[in-house]
Design a protein around this nucleic acid. Structure first.
Length: 468
RNA sequence: GGCCCGGUCGUCUAGUGGUCUAGGAUACUUGGUUUUCAUCCAAGAGAUCAUGGGUUCGACUCCCAUCCGGGCUACCA
């Protein structure tokens, strides 16, 4: 049984990088009918943020990445005795030792080594001192082998070797009784029966320590797959100074979860052909770890914008055939509860990169436009011709009971034909009367979005403005 | 500094020794469509495959070196 996990620290909002790691872990497991679990790594009490766990789960849920244990994730701070017991077992087997070096001492050692041009490494002072646990503050360090190579067979990177002698005697239990990541993740991954550890590249360097820990504990290690990182435009690790980096930021800016998921999946994974648009389900059935890249990828907002626009288009077109109550959620967060079919049509014509842009447009469209009436006259037209166009159109619109696209188009065309006018005498002023803007969707789209009553009201106002 | 990972159009990428004078997408430019803008359609420009050496009849593809970028080097994860 394939079983993967996502193990964030509750130190803030879910990051794009974390979300992508979660996505790949989820896709890998679900592709093989496996389980995807969530584990909260809250062993650092200083960085712990109240409520962060809930917000991470919420962001994940918004993306559609639902862990099989999302209702009750594994929480490390609730499992302290397990880590302590394991550390003591290692201690009794001489695979770990008590270290009483103070932080100041360690800091001084490190500084001296750095100044001497040496790589910083724990001195090993307590390694063979065989100290017992006493009242004195202590930590427990694992005893790394001092010779040989440690091999990591990474599913993405292949075979990577590390010189054991260069590895530090990692602290596995801190003086506050909490485990470090290394111990806790090894124990939990084993107990949760995780078959594949899929995590970010930043963990590759400490994987040898984890492998040694598995051996010491007498367990077989899971498979490892280290994902490349997501980079900012300046090629450094994506971080806050690059602007929006949390999933919730994108939600608030009007990105669709489907678009964000699709975009993140393409950052480092591809289907080996030209397809680019994938739903979460399609991603699940297509995903293969072999198709994941080794190199880091820059988060390119332009491409996300394009993809989000494409999703907005498709989604608004789908909603068009549904009832008003069903589409009430679409732009709800921007204060728009109900969308008419005509408004959805207008959104579906494309051009909006975010939901917020679309909502802002609909909001402004719903207000009676204010504009200089000279704008009503097309550059190749005249005031009298414009007035005729507007008046005849207004009359015909009042007479019709058939407010659909084809009919409206025919009406406008018939005004042009019957009154011997040009498109510029009719289409342009009607459009301006409805939108109040130099640039806008077509008059037919606007008529559809605004409805009969509002459209006639605006055209009437335009006629009055022009006459006075 | 040490160890580790990576390096194909600006960006995401295809490419696993000959089909590559390198394909797709995005962004950009131009043309078409449109009363306008956007959409849409079409076309174009854009990569001496980081650099230098090998190996080979032949290398983007294999090997080495160099350079560049990134990660780790915490009682953070």
């Amino acid at each position: 049984m394939i079983r993967t996990r996502f193990a964030p620290s509750p130190t803030g909002e879910l990051h794009i990088g974390g979300a992508r790691t979660a996505l790949f872990s989820y896709l890998f497991a679900k592709n093989q009918a496996g389980e995807f679990l969530l584990r909260i790594e809250d062993t650092d009490r200083e960085r712990f943020v109240e409520g962060a766990t809930e917000r991470i789960i919420e962001s994940l849920g918004w993306l559609g990445i639902i862990a099989d244990n999302a209702g009750k994730p594994i929480v490390q701070s609730e499992r302290l005795e397990k880590y302590l017991a394991a550390a003591k077992k290692l201690l009794s087997e001489d695979k770990a030792y008590v270290c009483t070096c103070s932080k100041e001492e360690l800091e001084a050692d490190r500084e001296a080594q750095t100044n001497a041009g040496l790589p910083p490494k724990y001195s090993g002072k307590c390694r063979d001192a065989h100290q017992q646990i006493s009242d004195k503050p202590y930590v427990i360090r694992m005893k790394m082998p001092q010779t040989g190579n440690i091999v990591v067979d990474d599913l993405i990177r292949g075979r990577v070797e590390f010189d054991a002698a260069l590895q530090d005697d990692q602290i596995i239990l801190k003086s506050d009784g909490f485990p470090t990541y290394h111990l806790a993740s090894v124990i939990d991954d084993h107990e949760m029966e995780i078959s594949h550890v899929i995590r970010s590249e930043e963990w590759l360097s400490s994987t040898p320590k984890h492998i040694v820990l598995y051996e010491m504990l007498g367990w077989s290690a899971p498979e490892f797959a280290h994902l490349s990182m997501i980079l900012g435009p300046d090629h450094s690790k994506l971080s806050k100074r690059h602007g929006a980096t949390s999933v919730i930021d994108y939600k608030n800016q009007g990105y669709l979860p489907e678009a964000l998921v699709n975009f993140m999946a393409l950052l480092g994974w591809n289907p080996k052909d030209d397809r680019e648009i994938f739903s979460l389900d399609e991603l699940t059935s297509e995903f293969k770890l072999e198709n994941v890249n080794k190199s880091g990828a820059i988060f390119d907002i332009e491409k996300l914008n394009w993809m989000n626009g494409a999703y907005i288009k498709v989604k608004s077109q789908k909603l068009k055939v549904k009832s008003v109550s069903q589409n009430s959620k679409f732009l709800e967060e921007w204060g728009i509860e109900e969308l008419s079919a005509g408004e959805l049509e207008l959104i579906g014509r494309g051009g909006f990169r975010t939901l917020k842009e679309a909502a802002d447009y609909i909001t402004s469209l719903r207000k009676m436009p204010e504009y200089d009436s000279s704008l009503l006259i097309f550059k190749k037209s005249t005031k009298p011709q414009t007035l005729i166009g507007l008046e005849v159109t207004s009359y015909k619109l009042q007479e019709t009971n058939n407010w659909d696209e084809n009919n409206l188009k025919e009406i406008l065309e018939s005004v042009v034909a019957e009154k011997n006018l040009t498109n510029g005498d009719v289409f342009w002023p009607v459009r301006v009367a409805l939108s109040g803007a130099e640039k806008s969707p077509s008059p037919v789209e606007l008529l559809l979005a605004l409805g009969k009553e509002e459209s006639i009201k605006r055209i009437t106002k335009a006629i009055n403005d022009l006459e006075n």
